[in-house]
Amino acid sequence: MPNWGYIAVIILAFYIVTSTVLYYLQEYFIFKPEKLDKDFEFHYNNQVVEEYNLETRDGAIINGLHFKVENPKGVVLYLKGNSKSIKGWGKFAVDFTRHGYDVCMLDYRGFGKSTGRRSFKAIKRDLQFVYNKLKEKVDEKYIILYGRSMGSGFATKLASINNPKMLILDAPYYSLSKVAAKFIPFMPVSLIMRYPIPTYKWLKYVNCPIHIIHGTHDKLIPFKSSIKLSKIKPKLTRLYTVIGGGHKNLNNFESYHKMLGEIINSKMRKINLSNTSIGVKHSSKNVNVQA
């Protein structure tokens, strides 16, 4: 006869040890940083770019790039995903500068040339610090927040406590905890996640136009997560579908660039609904229709 009590203790011990390991080592699974030497020089063809370094109150250095155009319409604060550094992500700045917008990118702590001890609280504080620096030079009504993948959650957080022109979310997740739960469904994710990044909670407090772009074939963050997000503030939100798009290749679709152009060049207009079909109900009853 098996000793069920002994087996239960073994399973419980394994569960506790695994949870502890995941709690302390999760940064190795969430963040995939690329380190850059201090003397590394950024170069991008046909782009005017200026490197900047901002020192935070705890002595960390946040390194970033400012892509510039003549007579900018505004500035896009681009928050990247969880991998590499702005060395590679900088190539996407052209998608905004071509429309007459400056672009500011930054590396999170531990990425690229940025330094400092990384934590959920520290990253949020750093991003607000950078946003405040932008506000010193640009009125908020000219600031567009663009968040890609992991950056979509942090962009939403910024939009929830500030007043940017608009928020654009590229392949966003409902919450990072939900993404993690898909890979480790047997673990108490809500208790061990040090970076829950609850996009859906922060989105409730966003009061600017919200634009969500997502590929239908995204296998990392399912398209349905954007559908759920779009229902949180439906009057402010538009959902854009890139048919066939995956998680890392939206920039290779012509439809993505058309959508992006429409979004950043759009102006919010109030619609007179008095002369539309709003409120008209379809009747299931037979009615006489005259030709």
Results as ranks from 00 to 15, higher is better:
127 L>I: 08
221 I>R: 05
268 M>H: 13
172 P>V: 12
266 S>L: 11
166 M>D: 08
41 E>W: 00
181 A>T: 05
146 Y>H: 11
96 F>W: 06
255 S>N: 06
244 G>P: 13
52 Y>W: 14
288 N>T: 05
70 E>N: 14
99 H>P: 00
174 Y>W: 12
95 D>Y: 15
54 L>M: 10
108 Y>D: 00
176 L>M: 15
263 I>M: 10
219 K>L: 12
29 F>K: 12
208 C>R: 01
40 F>C: 05
63 N>I: 03
39 D>R: 10
99 H>L: 11
265 N>C: 06
57 R>L: 07
174 Y>R: 04
246 G>F: 06
149 S>C: 15
280 V>K: 04
127 L>A: 08
15 Y>M: 11
180 A>T: 02
148 R>E: 14
6 Y>F: 10
4 W>I: 13
235 K>R: 06
9 V>I: 13
80 K>I: 14
21 V>N: 03
252 N>F: 02
239 L>D: 14
118 R>Q: 05
114 S>E: 00
5 G>K: 07
3 N>K: 12
57 R>C: 00
264 I>E: 05
31 F>S: 09
154 F>T: 13
40 F>K: 14
245 G>R: 02
151 G>N: 07
157 K>G: 09
110 G>P: 02
30 I>R: 07
275 N>T: 15
142 Y>C: 04
122 A>Q: 10
22 L>F: 10
188 P>N: 11
289 V>P: 00
60 A>G: 09
190 S>K: 13
288 N>M: 07
191 L>K: 15
237 T>F: 01
259 M>Y: 15
166 M>L: 15
25 L>F: 13
94 V>T: 09
194 R>K: 15
12 L>F: 12
55 E>P: 01
173 Y>Q: 13
74 G>W: 06
263 I>Y: 11
112 G>T: 07
64 G>W: 02
